[in-house]
Amino acid sequence: MTAPSPRAPLLDIEDLWVSFPGAFGAAPVEAVRGVSVSVARGERVALVGESGSGKSLTARAIVGLMPPSACWRARRLTFQGQDLAALSKRDWRRLRGRRLAMVLQDPRYSLNPVMRVDRQVIEALRAADPTLSRLAARERARAALDAVHLRDVDRVMRAWPHQLSGGMGQRVMIAMMVALGPDLLIADEPTSALDVTTQTQVLAILDELVEARGMGLLFISHDLPLVAGFCDRVAVMHAGRVVETLPAADLAHARHPYTRGLLAALPDPEGSPDPLPVLRHDPAWWDGPSGGDLS
């Protein structure tokens, strides 16, 4: 095996399939069908699609948190050149958090409701690095919460999760993940539970982390315009496949009719009140050629 070059992808997925056994002996349901995505260091890649497109399952496959009934296979699924399929449970524990972290959609379900914020962050830090002393961990936690621009860090640290607003909770989650200094952050709809103004702040934090630390970011979202403005590369998913991958700046010139249809269906604050063009799903997209990597 060749040594990874500096521009070698951090995360490399090739031909990932995920399927579920059908109910009552029916044929298995294939939720992800041959997805290939790669994320390089310091790169922001978006995985965009509507509900049921398989984008979240792809993310879960990467961090090894699949629903128990799911079966998956991939020609390649490597992280920093390491085959994720071959990892033992112990390896996983060491990998998750420290080098590979995930932020979920709703902070209300990701924070433990009966543990104060400071303890949760400290526990996460110490779980990833058992040599860290309690005091040092507390300092690191404070620095992390500071880094995500939380006002009044002391109050947040003493707070119970239910006392936090959605935006604060999400920032705590990001702080927790980022304090571990991961090489790759997978963010599954990190802003869709948030208001517009908070959303902008959270994106700015993620942006800063990518720029300053060279972290790789895989951003899962249903919001095409949002990721277009935020990410470097966009992979559009439909029915378990990537139909198109293109640089975010070129999204306006998207070629695939599905991508174009999605963009057209968005209401425009300054547009006409005419009926919106409705996306007509074309069965040909189901099996058409998979979108190549244009980068």
Partner: peptide
């Protein structure tokens, strides 16, 4: 203005 900007930005970039 803030709301409008947010809506516009996402639209423009798209």
């Amino acid at each position: 203005r803030c709301l409008l900007d947010a809506a516009r930005i996402s639209r423009r970039r798209g």
